[in-house]
Design a protein around this nucleic acid. Structure first.
Lengths: 200, 200
DNA sequence: CTGACATCTTAAACCAGATCAAGATGTTTT
DNA sequence: AAAACATCTTGATCTGGTTTAAGATGTCAG
């Protein structure tokens, strides 16, 4: 048997860190969030489909990315342990997603459907506040990334990536990191060489 | 007397479009949100200070921007009529702001302080939901912008600006638009020339 | 009316990062 | 263990956009 027994615990701890939950609220979380295992390279969401779940990563790593008209792709966000990932626009407006989400490693997630989330808000309004705080945090991270994208050089963006995702440096192939900082893998290779020379 | 009598109305209408408010809740909004007029070029927030208010633009236009180490600046967001603007990270974490906000025109805003907003959430939990929805919308817009920044050419980003802010094309000098799409004013001049030639 | 300053355009030289191409090393499949 | 494929590096050439500089036009305070 896989080690997906009690994958709910990290999520309860995550919520508890925002506002402590009652036993009833914990039980509600247990019934509403369903565990699911995605294998490496498997899609969580494919561009053009509706994003049906709000996903919490328990173990592994997912990426949210966009494929441009010229075939190049750009990673907007990684989500490893204890992070959330979804196409929020598609999820809330029930519109076809502009983005893809897939697994870079075998990944255990806890996911909640739109209807269950709305029901959760109704049954326990505390989750309105929890998800408000969650969205605030998500927004802040994204605003920082936006600021970095417009004002940093490629080298600075690589260093920012190392700060934001210290765990992922050794877990991801550099083509993924390049797609995140917005350069070609060839150029990232040069950046790394330059940094190694300056620090060695 | 200036026409800032009853500037509260657009805000009440904005909230009402999310969830309809009771008379008590409307009264609460009236007491918590304070009108304020910023003159053109006046700062709403200066980098290094704490962002103390959550701001709703009734009339006029503000911009949120970052000054880089090399002195160049980059506009992350404009806010004209019926839009929100603040440095969310500074506001929520009480940390020095990374961004500046200032007025591109004389601008009438309605603003609420951090303490008043927290009090509003306590007195009327409906605002937890309203601000959750508001943050969702803000987040979606920003995610779209992020996707455009990484995957569009300068020309495409200019066209996206025209779609996002149809009103602002004629209200803003092109140096502001250039700082938003992430090019020099000189290059924007060429883009416009190229577009005019292809459509004329 | 005039000087000072902002706004926009055009051109020439330049640069960060892309593209194309090739080879080296590692990993998976059969 | 070979074949097939992914990953990373390095070099040569090219390009989208910057920089610097200059001039044209507009606008506003005194």
């Amino acid at each position: 048997m896989k080690d997906n027994h009690k994958p709910i615990r990290p999520l309860l701890e995550y919520f508890d860190r925002v506002i402590s939950l009652t036993d009833d609220e914990k039980e509600l979380v247990r019934t509403k969030f369903k565990p699911h295992l995605y294998l490496k390279r498997q899609f969580v969401l494919q561009h053009g489909n509706i994003c049906k779940t709000f996903n919490f990563v328990v173990r592994g790593c997912l990426r949210l990315y966009k494929v441009s008209s010229d075939g190049t792709y750009h990673v907007l966000q990684f989500a490893n342990e204890n992070h959330w990932i979804l196409d929020l626009t598609s999820f809330h407006k029930h519109k076809p997603a502009l983005f893809n989400i897939d697994a870079l490693e075998d990944t255990q997630v806890l996911r909640i459907s739109y209807d269950d989330l709305i029901d959760l808000y109704i049954k326990a309004p505390k989750f309105d506040r929890i998800f408000r705080v969650l969205l605030e945090n998500h927004f802040m991270q994204q605003q920082e990334r936006l600021a970095q994208l417009v004002s940093f050089t490629a080298e600075e963006r690589y260093e920012a990536f190392l700060n934001t995702y210290p765990d992922l440096q050794d877990r991801l192939p550099q083509v993924q990191i390049a797609a995140y900082i917005g350069v070609t893998p060839e150029f990232l290779s040069r950046i790394r060489k330059r940094l190694a020379e300056n620090n060695g």
